[in-house]
């Protein structure tokens, strides 16, 4: 099993609800708290597992805004785990989730250096590294209804831009989406083989202008349009 997220860049509206839901759930979750520094001051900052950036693709006027949520990719070849000297960082064999054992971490920052996706952030109050757990305390919670056993970010996304599932199973919805929409990995050249995939924007169909057609009806319509003021 290889659990991860598939993020649809075509429909993400960049509302940051996933980041807020993530913070809300995980602040009291297994790796909580997610400390804030100077939250109401001039320079608010803090620990977040999920961050959304916004890019312009192409050049005006042929450009498009892309909202880009990023969290831990739960890489197959996770260097953050190999470089960890204490064994605090580990990747679960059963579902591929990468976690940090808060009781073992010494806060050397080395794993964050090895992560190309900026998924790891040091919590200054505990002195330990923290990161996305794929809401491990939700997805296996037998007390929750089955449909709620998903990461908080996925549940909250109003645009349904986030999907959670097993990317090892070719029959899963996430695998199908990656297959059909040409889902891709970030920074593939570094060889981390991230589990999370991104779906590129769809090619929009041209919007019919209504001016087409050379028949009699088209000519009548054209005449009416010229005569009638609307």
């Amino acid at each position: 099993m290889r659990l991860g997220l598939v993020i649809d860049l075509d429909v993400c509206v960049g509302c940051h609800a996933c980041a807020v839901a993530c913070k809300e759930w995980n602040a009291s979750g297994t790796t909580g708290p997610l400390s804030d520094y100077d939250p109401y001051g001039a320079e608010p900052s803090g620990v977040w597992f999920n961050r959304i950036r916004h890019y312009e693709i192409g050049e005006y006027p042929n450009s498009k805004t892309i909202n880009f949520p990023m969290s831990c990719m739960h890489c197959e070849d996770a260097d953050c785990v190999t470089v960890c000297p204490t064994g605090a960082s580990y990747k679960r064999a059963e579902d591929g989730i990468v976690l940090v054992d808060q009781n073992k971490c010494m806060g050397c920052n080395y794993c964050s250096w090895a992560c190309p996706y900026g998924a790891r952030e040091l919590d200054r109050s505990s002195g330990t590294m923290k990161k996305c757990t794929l809401c491990i305390d939700r997805i296996y919670d037998q007390d929750l209804p089955v449909e709620e056993r998903q990461p908080a970010c996925v549940l909250t996304c109003p645009a349904h831009a986030r999907m959670f599932g097993d990317l090892d199973d070719p029959g899963s919805a996430v695998s199908a989406a990656v297959r059909e929409r040409g889902g891709y990995q970030l920074l593939p050249e570094l060889g981390y083989n991230p589990t999370n995939h991104y779906l590129p924007p769809r090619k929009p169909k041209p919007i019919p202008s209504g001016e087409s057609g050379h028949g009699v009806m088209a000519k009548v319509k054209k005449l009416v349009n010229r005569v009638v003021r609307r």
């Binding site: 940051h16 320079e43 970030l186």
Partner: peptide
């Protein structure tokens, strides 16, 4: 090596950051 294009996956056009999404500095 890596560029903003391979990082975001948009390799056929110019990619420009509009907003980092945080109001002030982060750990990163």
């Amino acid at each position: 090596g890596s560029t903003i294009n391979t990082a975001t996956g948009f390799t056929r056009g110019k990619v420009r950051l509009l907003d980092t999404g945080h109001t002030h500095g982060t750990f990163l």
